[in-house]
Simulated scan of single mutants.
Amino acid sequence: MVSNRRVAEIDLIVTDGHDGLLAAVGSLFTATPRQRCLVHKQRNVLNAVPHRERQEVAAELGGIWKQEKKEDALLNLAAFKAKYRQRYPEAIRSLMEDEEHLLTFYTFPPVMYRYIRSTNAIESLFSNVRRRTDQIDAFTTETSCLTIVWAVMQDIRLPKIPVD
């Protein structure tokens, strides 16, 4: 039996900066809000900062998205940009690339923030699948590969995201 079930609506898309993924989901889910993975964004920004100053800059940058309210995060973001615009223009350019998607998580309940600010959960899933499939030299068929992937996914226990 062929199923015609399709995803019709998504509450949030959490992405890294991959252009192909952004184009695909952007064309299908035009009204869906997007959260930029803050782990990837922070790494990209810090790549434009000298090693000797990364720890200090990282603390300030991470402090932006650890604010309780979006208004406070916006104030910290503005202060961060003003402070480093002249010294690290490439870092600020990188930060501003996705500025409109950095603080989307604030539209959700605070108990969800830590789960939806990054792509860590999905990357952990992919890592577990990769670890199991890398042990196999070659799959005889596509079905055998999918069977292993499905089995691995059944054993992975991701934390439930609270919605209250």
Score class of each variant (00 low, 15 high):
A58Y: 00
E60A: 05
T119Y: 03
G26A: 03
G17H: 01
V149E: 09
L102P: 04
E60F: 04
M153D: 07
S94N: 08
K69G: 04
V57S: 12
F105N: 06
F105Y: 14
Y106S: 13
C145N: 13
S118C: 05
Q35W: 00
N4Y: 08
L38G: 02
D134H: 13
K69S: 15
V57P: 00
R130Q: 12
K69N: 05
G62Y: 01
R131S: 14
T147N: 14
W150L: 11
Y113G: 09
E56H: 07
V45H: 00
I122R: 01
A48W: 02
S3M: 05
N128R: 11
V39M: 08
D134G: 01
I13S: 05
E97Q: 15
Y115E: 10
F108C: 12
D16P: 02
Y84H: 05
E60T: 05
A31P: 01
V25I: 13
P50H: 11
E123L: 14
G26H: 13
I116S: 01
L61A: 08
M1P: 02
I156R: 06
L77N: 03
V163E: 15
V2G: 03
R36Q: 11
V149F: 00
F29E: 06
A8G: 11
L146R: 11
L46Q: 13
H18R: 03
P89D: 13
L74Y: 01
T104N: 06
I116C: 02
H18D: 11
I122L: 09
P109D: 05
A8N: 08
R131E: 15
E142W: 11
N4L: 14
E9A: 04
T107E: 13
D16N: 15
V14S: 02
A73W: 01
M153W: 14
A138T: 07
G63Q: 02
F108P: 12
Y84N: 05
H40Q: 08
P89A: 12
R43K: 04
R5V: 10
L46I: 15
W65A: 15
L77V: 10
R87L: 09
Y115P: 03
Y106A: 06
R130N: 10
